[in-house]
Design a protein around this nucleic acid. Structure first.
Lengths: 303, 303
DNA sequence: ATTTGCCATAAGAAAAAATTATCGAGCAGA
DNA sequence: TCTGCTCGATAATTTTTTCTTATGGCAAAT
């Protein structure tokens, strides 16, 4: 009934083209009875004769003729399945859904995209920029393939790969240039501008200053590092930003950048993906490229 | 490698839609390990993971997603094969390639076509009108499904079914009306108009007169019965035609028809097809309809 | 009439796929 | 943190399918 097999269809096609059981069988690398039986069962399943067995030759019936057109089409499509799989073996193909947190995306993404599309021509990269908790959720739900976040995440469901560790730097008004960089105790006395709640970078900044993140601030949170820097430039206060953001964010603002020393605050950026993801191998490649992208960026800055 | 089975594709589709091995297996009416193994082998054959087995759910990978689109399409087409076969089970469907000799076609074909297309709605009938030897050849080569000819053909490769026997009648000029119908000896002295060589009806006429068919005639052969009758109407001679042709051919010509007696010349018309034809059952039905058509025609003439 | 080519069939062997039973990993509720 | 539970993977065995080899029979060709 619905028990057609691809094998039967292959035998059928061979017999249709060769018009000869023996040769068709040979073409299929089986013996003639094997092919005979399968053709017979195919005809039985269909309830219709496909071939007319004359003494001299084997010919398709009218129905068989129509049948063969469809069978050829089907076999072709089946073969394509294999091709498709083979094509996507090593090179990562298709879509890569990548999440990135907002304090990384603007600075690193352009480089990542450039490098990725160079090394993985066929890959179309979807980027989602949002806060860590949402990235984690979407990753869990399978709506993302990987995410670039600040470590640690410590979710046992994820593989976590550290990519790089970068310093957090102080952004002050131009007016403060030359004055010594405050230590973290002094920092606590200053007006520290922070990202809105939910940004991990906010928590990292607070943590560096030993300020509990639950403590309410003065209500001057910015929605982006860019906003914070602008506010600093306006003389409203100081802020911390990741080193990576320096070239972009301090270019057009009248601010100066100061490095802390001993201990310097840092954040570690990494990539995470579901441990069960079958893309694991590929994702490690992607992680390497992201790491390379960060290195590129850093090298560029230090020119 | 190229060992994909339809079964695997069916299991795959079930798992893709259910997202759950147990339920997919149930839907396929097999146990869960059976499905598990087949999916595993499918993935192995392809060399790619199709599903991501999370603890909580089973999800298609990006590749699996693309794969499933194609698989659904393929399975649909495979199912159509079955439908197609089922649809053509009893009712004869598709094309019927029917050969007919020229001394039958003009008289019987309209009726046959009418009756056939009434009883076999879905059948599109291709008609080929030519001389017996060519019909036999095309039948042998599988380029025709059946032929309506004068019997006997006596080819062991063919099934031969007699349909009806009809008289051959004399066509004379109107002027001869009322004079007795000549017997075959007298006929030999008259100017007998015949079809061109190759027509079996020519040979049958000659045979009735005991004239060897090898004997050259006076070069007045007609290419059709219609021509012969017109010639008779012009007073050139007499001719024989099958009774079936009388209403059509003698309607507009100034000729009269005479029946021989004792023995009347006759020809037997029948249908032939390759004994190996899988349409045998259907062709017997067609033969019945052809026979009925001849009866219809005869009844109509005798009104 | 005999031989030959070719497909069908039968019987036994090999391969594939199913079943039952069991394991172990990840969640969830206690 | 443990414990029970769900669910998929795996193992061992049986059943089913599909081969191969051997052989038969029919029709065409010599």
């Amino acid at each position: 009934m619905a028990n057609l097999t691809i094998r039967q269809l292959r035998y059928f096609e061979a017999l249709a083209t060769h018009g000869h059981f023996g040769r068709a069988a040979e073409a299929c690398a089986v013996t003639q009875p094997a092919l005979s039986v399968q053709i017979k069962e195919l005809e039985q399943d269909l309830g219709t004769k496909l071939f007319e067995r004359g003494a001299r030759q084997v010919r398709l019936t009218g129905f068989g003729e129509e049948f063969s057109l469809r069978v050829r089409d089907i076999l072709h499509r089946v073969d394509e399945l294999g091709d498709m799989a083979r094509a996507s073996h090593d090179k990562m193909v298709g879509r890569l859904r990548l999440g990135v947190i907002p304090t990384i995306a603007p600075y690193l993404l352009p480089r990542i995209i450039a490098n990725l599309s160079q090394s993985h021509q066929e890959l179309d990269v979807h980027v989602r920029e949002t806060l860590t908790p949402r990235l984690v959720q979407e990753l869990t739900e399978g709506r993302l393939d990987a995410a670039i976040v600040a470590l640690p995440i410590s979710d046992p469901a994820f593989t976590e790969v550290a990519l790089f560790t970068e310093n957090m730097v102080l952004v002050r008004s131009d007016a403060d240039a030359g004055t010594p960089v405050p230590d973290k105790e002094a920092l606590r006395e200053m007006r520290l501008l922070l990202l809105e709640e939910g940004h991990c970078f906010r928590d990292q900044a607070l943590s560096f200053c030993n300020i509990p993140s639950s403590l309410p601030q003065e209500g001057l949170d910015g929605s982006s590092l860019s906003t914070l820097v602008q506010m600093v430039g306006a003389g409203i206060g100081v802020t911390l930003i990741p080193e990576m953001a320096v070239p972009v964010e301090t270019r057009s603002a009248s601010v100066c950048v100061g490095h802390f020393r001993n201990p310097q605050p840092t954040r570690t950026v990494g990539m995470i993906w579901r441990r069960t993801s079958p893309l694991a191998d590929h994702l490690q490649q992607v992680a390497d490229i992201v790491q390379q992208s960060a290195n590129d960026l850093r090298a560029e800055e230090n020119i």
